[in-house]
Write a protein that binds this DNA or RNA. Structure first.
Lengths: 335, 335
DNA sequence: GTTAGCACTCAACATGCCCAAGTGCTAACA
DNA sequence: TGTTAGCACTTGGGCATGTTGAGTGCTAAC
C-alpha cells in the first residue's frame, strides 16, 4: 500500500472520530472521504495502521479509534493549521483594546481562549526575570506588622505582610525604605538575593535586625513573582465536551486545582519555537491526565499559554487558536 | 400520628438517604432506627409526609427521598449541629499559624474547608468598607503610563495601570502623590468618591488634568476592593461526590466560574446572625444550581464563607464545619 | 496492488421473565 | 384512635435469550 494513502487514512480516521466521537469503520470512511479506493483496501490499510499502533479497535467488531501514538503522528506530520475564522480573528483583536492592566489582560485572554477552543484555557503569569525594581514600600499595619510592597517596572505588584519581632517605629521604616529604594531601584528582581545583603550590612546597627527581616520579605517577593502563578477558565467545558463520552473528569479537575502540577506540566513542555507544542494522553507526566491533551506555547518572555482538553480534540483548530492568542499576547505585552 | 414521630421519620429518611444515596423504604427504616413502631405505621406516616410535600417517591414502588422542602424542614427544625472531631478541630487550629498575609489565609481557608466538607468551598474577600487609606503610590511605567497603587490599613493592596493622555513628568507625579497622600491618608476607602474631587480642585491648574485621571484611578481601586472577589477550592469534589448519582455538573461549574453569580448568591443569603444559612436546591436563584445547596455564613465584617454541594449532603456536619471555619477566620482577621 | 465476496464476531438492542422491594389498603387489635 | 398484620398490587432491575447490523479478516479473482 502507498505511504501517502496510509497517512490519508489515518487523517480521515482522526478527523471523523473527533467529529463523531464514535469508532469509525472502513465503509463509512470511503463514503465520507473520496479516497478513490474501496472499503476492502481501506481495511487492509487499517490493519497495517493497527499493527503499527496508530489506531486501535475498542472491541472485535467495531471501527477503529486513534491511539495516542496516532494522534501524535497526526499532529506532527499530517495536520495543517486551520486558519481562524473572521469572527475569531475579530475576537482576538478586541483583546488589544481595554486597559493595560496585566491581570485584566490575562483574565480576558483565558476567557477568550476557552471560548475559542471550547476547552479549559490556562495561562501562566509572565516571567519577570528581566523585570526591574521600580518601587519599594513599607507600610506599618500594626505595631509589629509591616506590609512590604515591591513594584516592578512591568506593572506587577507583590505584597506580603511580615512580622517584625518587636515594635517598629515609623521613622525607622521610612529611613529603611529610602535606603532600600536607593540601593535596589532599577535592579533586576532576579538579582535581589545578591544585592540585598549588602544593603542590610550598610544599615545602622540598631536597625540591622529590622532591615534583615525586611530584606527577607523583599526577597520572598521577588521569588514569588518568579514562582509563577496560573490563571484558568472554562472548566465547565470539561463537563460539556464529555457528556456522552465519560472521560473521568475528577482527576482532571484535581490536576487543574494543583497549580504546581499545571506549572510543571506547562514548563515540561519544551518550547518549540516554530509553533505550539502538544502533549497527548499518556505522554503527560500526570496520571490523571492520561485521557487528556495539552496544547500550549510560549508567549512574551517564555511564559506559557495553552489549553487542556480530551485527547479527542480538534487539534488543527485548537492549535491555531492557541498560536494566534499567544501571538497577540506577546504583541500586547511587548508593546 | 404523633407530630414528634413524624419529624423523627423525616429525620431518619434524610439521614439514611444522605448516607446511602438510595431511596429509603419503610422496612429499612424501622430496622436501622429503633422507632418503636412497625413498618406499617411508618408507611402511614410516610404517606402523610408525602402529602405535605416533604418527601417524594421516584417511582411507584421505590422508597422515598426528601424533597427540597423536606431538607428545608430538616435543616430548620430537626438537625442538630454535629460537633467536629478532634482531628478537624486541630486542622482548623493550624490555620491560626503561619503568615498573616490575607491572601494566604483565605487560600488556606478554602482548601481546608473543601477538605473538611468534601464539597466546593468558597470564600469572599473581606469587606473593606471600613478600611482606611494607608498609602498611595504612583509609579511611572512608561512615559504615558502610570501604575496607581492603593494600600489599605487592612493590608489589602489595589493596583491599576492608567493611561495618562500625555507625557507625565516624574516630579509632577511625586508632587501629586504627596498631595493625595496628605489629603486622603486615613480616610475610609468608601469615602474616597466624596473626598477626591476637592483634592483635585486644590491642585495647580497645569496638573489638574493629570490629577483628575489619577483620582479616577484611585476611585476605581476603592471600588475594586469593594467589588468583592471570591476564592474557591475543591471543584474536583463535585465529580467525586456524584460518581454514581449524576448531578449534572456542567451548570454548576459554570456558576462557579461566574464570580458575579457566586457573589450574588452569597450576598443574597441573608446573614443569619445565629449561625449558618442554607439555600437548598430550587431555592437558589440560579437555575444551574437546582440540584445543589449552598451552606454559608458571614465572617469578619460581613463577607461570606461557605460551601456548595449536592442537595443530598450531610447538613449537620457541613454546617458545623462552615461555622467553625468562619469563627476562626473572624478571630484571625479580627486580631 | 486492488477488489468483491463471504463467513464470522460481537456490542447494542430488544424481549420476556422473575424477583425483591416497596407501597396502599383493609380488617383486626389494644 | 392509633397501631399492626396481612395481602394484593406495582414496578424497576437483573438475567437469560434472541436478533440485528456494523465491521472485520480472509481468500480468491482481477
Amino acid at each position: 500500500m502507498s505511504e501517502p494513502r496510509k497517512l490519508e487514512v489515518l487523517r480521515a480516521i482522526v478527523e471523523d472520530y473527533v467529529h463523531s466521537r464514535e469508532p469509525v469503520g472502513s465503509k463509512a470512511l470511503v463514503e465520507r472521504h473520496h479516497l478513490g479506493v474501496s472499503s476492502a483496501t481501506i481495511r487492509n490499510d487499517m490493519a497495517v495502521l493497527e499493527e503499527e499502533g496508530l489506531i486501535a479497535a475498542p472491541h472485535t467488531s467495531a471501527g477503529r479509534i486513534p491511539t495516542d501514538k496516532g494522534y501524535r503522528l497526526f499532529v506532527d506530520r499530517i495536520s495543517q493549521v486551520k486558519p481562524l475564522s473572521a469572527a475569531e480573528r475579530r475576537a482576538i483583536h478586541s483583546l488589544l483594546e481595554g486597559p493595560d492592566d496585566i491581570d485584566d489582560i490575562l483574565e480576558r485572554t483565558v476567557r477568550l481562549l476557552s471560548q475559542l477552543t471550547n476547552q479549559v484555557a490556562v495561562v501562566q503569569y509572565p516571567h519577570s526575570n528581566r523585570a526591574l525594581v521600580r518601587h519599594v514600600e513599607f507600610v506599618l499595619l500594626a505595631p509589629k506588622q509591616v506590609l512590604v510592597v515591591l513594584i516592578a517596572d512591568t506593572g506587577s505588584v507583590g505584597q506580603k505582610v511580615i512580622d517584625a519581632g518587636s515594635d517598629v517605629g515609623n521613622e525607622a521604616l521610612m529611613l529603611l525604605r529610602s535606603r532600600f529604594l536607593g540601593s535596589i531601584a532599577g535592579t533586576q528582581l532576579a538579582l535581589l538575593p545578591q544585592v540585598l545583603p549588602s544593603v542590610v550590612a550598610l544599615c545602622p546597627p540598631e536597625l540591622r535586625s529590622l532591615a534583615q527581616t525586611l530584606a527577607q520579605g523583599l526577597q520572598a517577593l521577588s521569588d514569588t513573582s518568579r514562582e509563577e502563578r496560573i490563571l484558568m477558565a472554562g472548566t465547565a467545558n470539561l463537563a460539556r465536551s464529555n457528556v456522552d463520552f465519560p472521560l473521568s473528569i475528577g482527576p482532571v479537575l484535581e490536576a487543574l486545582e494543583e497549580q504546581v502540577v499545571m506549572l510543571r506540566l506547562l514548563s515540561d513542555m519544551g518550547d518549540d519555537p516554530r509553533g505550539v507544542t502538544v502533549s497527548i494522553g499518556r505522554e503527560n507526566p500526570y496520571d490523571g491526565l492520561a485521557e487528556a491533551s495539552v496544547v500550549a506555547t510560549g508567549y512574551g518572555s517564555g511564559a506559557k499559554v495553552g489549553i487542556l482538553g480530551p485527547t479527542r480534540m480538534d487539534y488543527p483548530t485548537t492549535m491555531a487558536a492557541v498560536r494566534a492568542v499567544a501571538r497577540y499576547l506577546s504583541r500586547i505585552l511587548g508593546g
